[in-house]
Design a protein around this nucleic acid. Sequence first.
DNA 1: GTATAATGTCCTCGAACGACGACATGAGGG
DNA 2: CCCTCATGTCGTCGTTCGAGGACATTATAC
Lengths: 93, 93
Amino acid sequence: MFIRTPADLGAAIRDRRKSLGLSQSELAKRVGVGRQWLVAVEHGKPGAELALVLRVLDAINMPLMTGAPPPAAIGASDINLDAIIASARGDAS
Amino acid sequence: MFIRTPADLGAAIRDRRKSLGLSQSELAKRVGVGRQWLVAVEHGKPGAELALVLRVLDAINMPLMTGAPPPAAIGASDINLDAIIASARGDAS
DNA sequence: GTATAATGTCCTCGAACGACGACATGAGGG
DNA sequence: CCCTCATGTCGTCGTTCGAGGACATTATAC
């Protein structure tokens, strides 16, 4: 999943939290933040602090990655390796 | 590249900014933030606001993605597809 | 030697953050 | 019915953010 806005990230976090069977309170305590803060972040709070967000992602085991922009293609083909890998590993997300 | 800390992100941003031939002042103006803020972020400022960081990533065309955690392996092998893909697309930058 | 640009640091200021407690709602279980 | 849990919202408080200006340093060019 691609993250372009705080809301995107919030949705991703929520999905993952639920799929892990955690409540907001639990995750908040585990990460060391206020429950209310987590609520706001899952709703796409734009002013959330970077470090805390990264701590959440780490707590729910959600790797965040960045790379060069999609150079359109590697050779000349249009195969989307990311998509292939993603589905292959069963990222139902 | 994997982002686990604000410093990781800062380094990635700096690398990309330079590879685009932009100065801090230029990028800051383009993103709509103070130059000083950008300096801090590139140094790994932990309290940086999420939305602004995302705006920077967008400005330098640096997609951010997240997915399910590496389930260790797809079949039973240990091949690291992420690494393979990454190098294949020449993310050396 | 003198400009010019890029980067990093220090300062103040108003605004927003995150923590915490309290309360309301909705879903289930006793 | 009552009770518990999960979630969302409101208000208060101390802390920190981001903007903007000023100055130092280094490197490049005139």
